[in-house]
Design a protein around this nucleic acid. Structure first.
Lengths: 235, 235
DNA sequence: GACTTAATCTGGTATAGACCAGATTTAATA
DNA sequence: TATTAAATCTGGTCTATACCAGATTAAGTC
């Protein structure tokens, strides 16, 4: 098994990456070049690259090439730190874009959670977040307008937890989390510039206030190679 | 984009699976048959199947075929339930095999965590756990023999939390968790009967006693499609 | 220099075929 | 009937080649 061509090629690049001969973010030779150098067809080269991608060592940019994956950020939900804060603290540069925002009627699930009438207005917010210019996360959230009236008029590219603290005297407290390792929905994959079918990490998060009301329901779609989850269970 | 052959094929099977025309655990036609039916080459068929695999809808058994993925089990670390218990509670049949067990000297990391001397003996335990006959999880753990003397003589295919409770009057309490979505190491992939390069979920878990001592350090390698993680953060 | 256009390079998709090793089934044998 | 051996089926790996669309670069033009 270990003598397979793609397997050897994986080993070759894995070593270059671990030795930092190929540095974080740098570009690999093109598939054709690699094939020429190792006398392999593109099919075989691509199998090796795709395996390294699954490992999280490299990633691709559509029709641009393959690149060495930067270090993953550590996301610790129990710390209650905002994206901007924990990304910055770990020495990276965070960025947030608002892709869409609208007030829309709550669906049954959201309404039940927020204890509001079905079709009552909630704020839908759709954002893309990047680390060092690299899009890593698509966020789709439903925000409870009863608890946060007028929030739709704020600048919603900023940290929500900051906004809650400053303008509403509220803070994130308890939350329910569901993690699922699956490929990204094609819409999210597109928005992240990922080719369809790549593995991803799906997080559903329900944020509660101090008094157990649902502030916000959040669906996050992460590049699988961009984040490690770190949780302390204390009870 | 949506007109690509592999994409249509994905849609075809996704629908069959969601409609339960193809039932959980059932076998798909062979790659060659599918290719014949849709006038596609195996390369294209395989691309569709691999994407569905990344989605978690189907999985393969080496040289046997492709099968519809059974429902994932929900793993809630904060519940402190044993594998056997939560799997059973969710209507599945758990099974545990011991692949290896030995007393070995602690490495620096383990020793520091357990507050014991480097190279002091710890119990290494390597198990495979299955749900409904399907191997889903490889577990490699290091157990603190200071806190659990003589545990190596017990039947270590049983639930450890039961064993701790009954024989040592100890229970799992606090834990630190690190989740990482990456492909499985080839050894773990082999033991799960997965072909190399498939995505997986890697969990590192440190279990503490009531008095903050490290009972056990646990490395888990899950099939990515076999588990959803569910955590409640309360502080 | 700024702008436009064309050539080139990149990965993405796809065809057609081949051989292998392990799993399964069938046929032959004791 | 039980056992063994052979044929067949499966996914796994690989070659060789082709065309596409978007990204980048080079060349040409104003």
């Amino acid at each position: 098994m270990s003598t397979h061509h793609y397997y050897q090629l994986q080993g070759y690049f894995r070593e270059l990456i671990e030795q930092k001969t190929l540095k974080s973010g740098s570009k690999l030779p093109s598939e054709r070049e690699i094939g020429e150098q190792f006398k392999l067809t593109r099919v075989t080269v691509r199998q090796a690259l795709q395996n390294l991608e699954a490992e999280g060592l490299i990633y691709r940019q559509n029709r641009k090439g393959w690149f060495v994956t930067p270090p993953a950020v550590i996301y610790n939900p129990s710390s209650h730190l905002s994206f901007n804060l924990y990304v910055t603290e770990q020495g990276f540069l965070p960025h947030t874009e608002k892709l869409m925002q609208q007030i829309e009627p709550a669906n049954a699930y959201i309404a039940q959670l927020m204890n509001i009438a079905e079709n009552a207005p909630v704020l839908y917010l759709h954002r893309r977040r990047s680390i060092n210019q690299r899009p890593v996360l698509i966020e789709k959230m439903y925000i409870n307008l009863n608890l946060l009236p007028g929030i739709e008029k704020e600048d919603l590219t900023q940290s929500l937890s900051q906004l809650l603290k400053n303008n509403y005297q509220r803070e994130y407290r308890d939350m329910d989390l569901v993690f699922k390792s699956t490929s990204l929905p094609s819409s999210a994959a597109n928005e992240l510039g990922i080719s369809a079918g790549q593995p991803g990490l799906h997080i559903e998060r329900i944020n509660y206030t101090d008094d157990k009301q649902v502030l916000e329901v959040d669906y996050e779609f992460w590049r699988h190679d961009a984040v490690n989850i770190n949780i302390a269970i204390r009870d």
